[in-house]
């Protein structure tokens, strides 16, 4: 469905993405894992066309069409939707207006109504807060609103950037549960996460990103067995060394 081939993205002179290729199949939940500054968000922004004149090199294909170099507005129209990191709702618009802005590019009134009801059924709390300013919602509610707003574009591919950021464990569970449900309804999902444990639990394929390169890509059950993934992303310590202490920084195999 989405094919990214060898993209390189520059911020000024700094190369943030150093030749990343990845492929998302229809119906999948794909996850991109990685530490801070690995370039996860940059990949999503590049796909979404939010960075001017980027990617510098490489191609991005969506449903067989080249989308690199297109505007965000066109890409939304083709069926990709993006839930930005840190929620980014419109703080001084009501919840209702926020959701309706999600359907900005659409003209089909009936379809919009359907999607609106679907979002409300996923997130009933939003209908209680319908007329409230979005900025006055709690963090979890804002995240739900951001996801709901993205769903209002009726996307074929939904890209979520750290939906668990700053949420309590219970809310994280809820958000991931809903993510799974959205996927089951037929929306392909590309998820970027630092919470590797959760992400590996719900995804069907995962990429590990480091310093702008993909260093591992596999199904979650295989990645979960990987020594390095275990130690660096899941926090499971490997055994102590002969000298009796843990090495502060273990050398990764993939370097």
């Amino acid at each position: 469905m989405l094919k990214v081939k060898n993209i390189e993205t520059l911020y000024g002179l700094i190369m943030a993405i150093r030749g990343v290729s990845l492929e998302v199949q229809e119906g999948q939940i794909a996850a991109i894992l990685g530490a801070n500054g690995a370039g996860k968000t940059t990949i999503l922004k590049t796909i979404m066309g939010l960075l001017e004149d980027q990617p510098d090199k490489g191609t991005i294909e969506f449903l067989g069409k080249r989308i690199d170099g297109k505007d965000a507005e066109e890409i939304v129209h083709l069926g990709i939707s993006y839930v930005p990191e840190g929620r980014e709702v419109f703080p001084e618009l009501s919840v209702d207006e926020n959701l309706r802005m999600g359907a900005y590019t659409r003209r089909d009134k009936k379809g919009i109504k359907e999607d609106y009801d679907r979002v409300i059924s996923h997130f009933p709390v939003l209908s209680e807060r319908k007329n409230q300013w979005a900025g006055t919602l709690s963090g979890g509610e804002q995240q739900m609103l951001a996801i709901g707003r993205a769903l209002m574009t009726r996307p074929k591919l939904l890209m979520m950037d750290e939906p668990s950021l700053g949420l309590s464990p219970i809310l994280v569970k809820e958000i991931f549960g809903i993510t799974k449900m959205i996927n089951a309804e037929g929306t392909t999902i590309l998820l970027v996460e630092q919470n590797a444990k959760m992400a590996l639990k719900i995804s069907s394929y995962a990429f590990v990103l480091e310093n702008g390169r993909i260093v591992a890509a596999n199904t979650p059950d295989i990645l979960l067995q990987d020594e390095d993934v275990k130690e660096f992303y899941l926090g499971i310590r490997s055994e102590e060394s002969v000298k009796g202490y843990q090495r502060w920084k273990k050398k990764k195999r993939w370097r």
Binding site: M48, L50, D71, A72, E73, V76, H77, S81, Y82, P84, E88, V89, F90, P91, E92, L93, E97, R100, M101, G102, Y104, T105, R149, A150, T153
Partner: peptide
């Protein structure tokens, strides 16, 4: 109006507005 609300949205958060497909 849709355009009016979009104008307010753009003012509040340009990035999010672009992601919604607002020019």
């Amino acid at each position: 109006t849709k355009v009016g609300v979009a104008m307010r949205a753009t003012q509040q958060n340009q990035l999010a507005a672009r992601v919604m497909g607002i020019r």
